[in-house]
């Protein structure tokens, strides 16, 4: 069937609509790679500080080329956060020395104004978090942006649509392979490790 051409389109609707229509067919555009599209959509390269007070960039230093587990918490939370943190500690134990080598764990604060690196360091120590597991804070605007992009908050509060809930879930993913999923933060540590192993395959047999 013939594509609608620009002239007919203009007669029908008007130039902006037609541009969008023709653009929608991908004519004359080079498309970003899927990996780039995911990065642009979900991983702003904001500046963060670790609980060791080191400066890092979210995408470049923490996500790119890595297998990651991400959750949100805050230091004075005594509700569900300690349960998840304790659970993740067991996950770290099961993963052994892979954490920090090719698997990285990130706990990002929901209260960046209060949770300074020192406060996060105290929290990490209290929960006996091992190396390779970073607790992160930053400028409140940046952290809020991150929270929204990672889907922990409704991206557009104007719409009465999909909203955040994620108090208790952890996101896990293999960035270079564009594999992302989520699982309950309170699921058994063994199950979390098994889920993670799925992302970590060598290529096909």
């Amino acid at each position: 069937m013939a594509h609608i051409d620009r002239r007919t389109c203009l007669a029908l609707a008007g130039s902006a609509w037609c541009s969008a229509l023709l653009a929608g067919r991908g004519e004359g555009r080079t498309l970003p790679s899927p990996r780039d599209a995911i990065r642009a959509r979900y991983f702003p390269n904001v500046a963060l500080r670790t609980h060791h007070d080191r400066h890092v960039r979210f995408y470049d230093d923490l996500i790119k080329d890595k297998i990651v587990i991400i959750n949100f918490m805050y230091a004075e939370c005594e509700g569900v956060c300690p349960g998840i943190t304790a659970n993740l500690r067991k996950v770290q134990t099961l993963l052994g020395d892979r954490v920090g080598r090719d698997i990285f764990m990130y706990s990002i604060t929901l209260k960046p104004a209060e949770d300074t690196p020192a406060a996060l360091d105290a929290y990490a120590t209290m929960h006996d978090a091992g190396p390779g597991w970073l607790f992160l804070t930053g400028d409140p605007g940046d952290v809020e942006l991150l929270r929204r992009k990672l889907g922990f908050v409704s991206p557009d509060p104007r719409l009465d649509a999909d909203t955040s809930q994620h108090i208790g879930n952890i996101r896990y993913g293999n960035e270079p392979r564009q594999l992302w999923a989520a699982c309950p933060g309170l699921a058994s540590p063994r199950w979390i490790v098994e889920s993670l192993s799925w992302l970590d395959r060598r290529e096909s047999l």
């Binding site: 991908g26 995911i38 889907g151 999909d162």
Partner: peptide
């Protein structure tokens, strides 16, 4: 859903349901 380039899109970080 299709993105601005007309490519089929899946919202990876949605936990409620995709429309």
């Amino acid at each position: 859903v299709f993105d601005e380039n007309g490519v089929m899109f899946f919202d990876l970080f949605n936990l409620d349901g995709i429309l």
